[in-house]
């Protein structure tokens, strides 16, 4: 219990201390605000530019969630296809890997050409989806392969058909793997969305990346920090929510699966 309290209190205390130190050193060392603005100036940005920043954050969040959902659904579906058909796996998995190892920033120009400049949001969505898709596919595939062979035999012995085996055995056994992949995918969808906004959408969407570029060009460093803060916040909240979902689904039997 004490340890638990410390785990919450310590990071917060450290955070507050660092902020104090930051504020103090900027003032004391006379660092110009276009190099490093003090925390108070960053907070002040939310008073002046809050609406536009939150609007942009909303756009980026929307893209992130859409890409994340697409990645989760398509990654799981493809993994299920791989599990049911070796031929499909042999034929398709190299393409999944190619998609994964090619940096999305390098694919961006191609997607822009295909989708058209008018549909910048679609370009961003596609790129963020590509970024988030692979961990779902990889973890779901690994999970489906990690099914206890004895349990598999048991299902065969009782003449379970593919549907029964899939729903009663493969889905539950692979769930811990899948959820770990989905957690990674949440973060990657956000990274992918921002990178894609940088790469593809200058001036065409109003995501947070655009706010950061814009602020950079005008040397509004405090605003840049404010945008970064929002991004970090979004990432952390997303991760926390996904971790909670994972806990909800697994805490009863997690951690001791091997002994069962």
């Amino acid at each position: 219990m004490l340890m638990r309290g410390l785990r919450i209190i310590l990071p917060i205390a450290l955070f507050l201390g660092l902020i104090r130190f930051w504020e103090w050193s900027v003032v004391y060392l006379e660092i110009p605000p276009f190099i490093l603005p003090p925390p108070s100036a960053i907070l002040a940005v939310f008073a002046t530019d809050g609406a536009s920043l939150l609007g942009s954050a909303w756009t980026t969040l929307g893209t992130t969630l859409a890409a994340f959902t697409l990645a989760t659904v398509s990654g799981t579906a493809l993994a299920a296809l791989f599990a049911s058909s070796r031929i499909a796996e042999a034929a398709l998995s190299p393409y999944a890997v190619i998609l994964q190892v090619t940096p999305i920033i390098a694919i961006a120009p191609l997607i822009i050409v295909w989708v058209g400049l008018d549909n910048a949001w679609l370009t961003v969505l596609i790129l963020a989806w590509i970024a988030a898709f692979f961990p779902v596919l990889a973890s779901a595939t690994a999970g489906l392969k990690a099914v206890d062979p004895n349990l598999r035999d048991l299902f065969r012995l009782y003449r379970a058909d593919f549907r029964q085996t899939f729903i009663r055995l493969m889905v539950p056994s692979s769930l811990p793997y899948l959820l770990a992949g989905i957690k990674t995918a949440g973060g990657l969808a956000l990274v992918g969305a921002v990178v894609a906004e940088f790469a593809a959408a200058s001036g065409n969407t109003d995501g947070l990346a655009w706010r950061i570029l814009e602020a950079g060009n005008r040397l509004q460093i405090a605003k840049m920090f404010a945008a970064l803060l929002l991004l970090a916040l979004m990432g952390v909240v997303l991760y926390a929510i996904l971790s909670f979902v994972e806990w909800l689904l697994l805490h009863r039997w997690h951690g001791d699966r091997r002994h069962a």
Binding site: D148, N150, L151, D153, L154, L157, R168, L169, P172, S173, L175, R252, W253, D256, R257, A260
Partner: peptide, 15 residues
């Protein structure tokens, strides 16, 4: 009709 008892209990951990 068959029953099979494996060396491990081989239970579904989630059930």
């Amino acid at each position: 009709s068959l029953g099979f008892i494996f060396q491990e209990p081989t239970l579904m951990a989630w059930a």
